[in-house]
């Protein structure tokens, strides 16, 4: 079981309210990602769930029971920290066994569980080493190992991949996703990287300044962002926004169109402009086009084969069905 409900919770540090009243329901077995720019309160929210911070007001229910006043260890949750927080003076085996030792399990039982976890995480050969002798990815796996031996009702991950290099990050992303498939345990994952959010989540919670901007599946957020912030945050490269005459035509204060929903032509199109920079990735080409009448260049995704050069005049046509319209409060117009 791992169902978590947040009811009107708030958090203030001194006079500063970092989380205004907030409601959220996380279902058993879900992989939920909290995403948002740094300082949006996503880590604070995670720490409130963990019990590492006292909530200022509101109620946290875990599996139907009020857990607001329950100390961290008794909530049945496990956490993987950004810095991994491994105990440097203990071997890998002892690190992983620590929560079991605290729970008072006997030695044989501890060993059995540690060995099983080590096998899952490919750590069997490293059990007698100290964390200092491991690589970043191995440390990460030890931290995860320490979390899974407890068989928690939910895992909490606080930006666990931010200290790894790019290649390793992709690997660990897959490993964590696989782990979720195997364990089917609730996971709450905090990141500022929307790619991690899109690839791993069942449900994404987009936060800004402590406020939930939108909750939904990755594709919901992609297709029907509730407001400009979510539209701009989800998707890579970013959505293009246009105002003034461009949006007036669609009865909106602002319109947004994703780079992959604009077609480009040498000869004809709705808007015209000059190619600034073009980035060739092989599979795709990203063009940054300076459109007449717009301050910011428009990003366009095209196929890998097209040959547009710096200075070429091009014509752009948006896919009319895929245009997002926003009112002057930045909210989506249905």
């Amino acid at each position: 079981m791992g169902q978590i409900t947040l009811n009107q919770i708030t958090k203030s540090f001194g006079d500063v309210q970092v989380i205004p009243p907030l409601d959220l329901r996380i279902d058993d077995g879900e992989f939920v990602v909290f995403v948002g720019p740094s300082g949006c309160g996503k880590s604070t929210l995670l720490r409130l769930i963990a019990g590492l911070e006292d909530i200022t007001s509101g109620v946290i229910d875990i599996d139907g029971k009020d857990a607001t006043e329950v100390p961290p260890a008794k909530r049945g949750l496990a956490m993987v920290f950004q810095s991994y927080a491994l105990y440097p003076h203990m071997s890998v085996r002892k690190n992983i066994a620590f929560p079991l030792r605290m729970a008072g399990l006997d030695k044989a039982e501890q060993d059995k569980k540690v060995n099983a976890a080590a096998k899952v995480l490919n750590l069997t050969d490293y059990l007698e080493r100290r964390p200092g002798q491991l690589s970043g990815g191995q440390r990460q796996r030890v931290a995860i190992g320490r979390a899974i031996v407890r068989e928690p009702s939910a895992f909490l991950f606080d930006e666990p991949l931010s200290n790894l290099d790019a290649a390793l990050r992709v690997n660990m992303r897959l490993e964590i996703s696989e782990l979720h498939q195997t364990l089917k345990t609730t996971m709450i994952y905090v990141t500022h990287d929307q790619v991690e959010a899109m690839t791993m989540a069942d449900k994404i919670v987009v936060l800004q300044a402590g406020v939930i901007e939108q909750v939904g599946s990755p594709l919901e957020l992609y297709h029907t962002p509730r407001n400009r912030f979510v539209a701009g945050f989800i998707g890579s490269p970013k959505m293009n926004f246009m105002m003034g005459a461009f949006s007036a035509e669609y009865d909106a204060a602002t319109i947004g169109i994703r780079p992959e929903h604009i077609s480009v032509s040498h000869t004809e199109g709705k808007w015209s402009g000059k190619v600034g920079v073009s980035e060739h990735l092989g599979s795709d080409t990203f063009l940054y086009v300076d459109v007449d009448g717009l301050d910011d260049p428009v990003t366009v995704r095209s196929t890998g084969e097209v040959a547009f050069r710096h200075g070429d005049t091009v014509h752009l046509t948006p896919d009319a069905d895929k245009i997002h319209r926003f009112d002057n409060q930045g909210l989506r117009i249905a």
Partner: peptide, 15 residues
């Protein structure tokens, strides 16, 4: 001593 390590211990059930 990183505060996270002490928090990890707390999460792991240490009094």
């Amino acid at each position: 001593i990183p505060g996270e390590i002490l928090e990890a211990a707390r999460m792991d059930g240490a009094t």
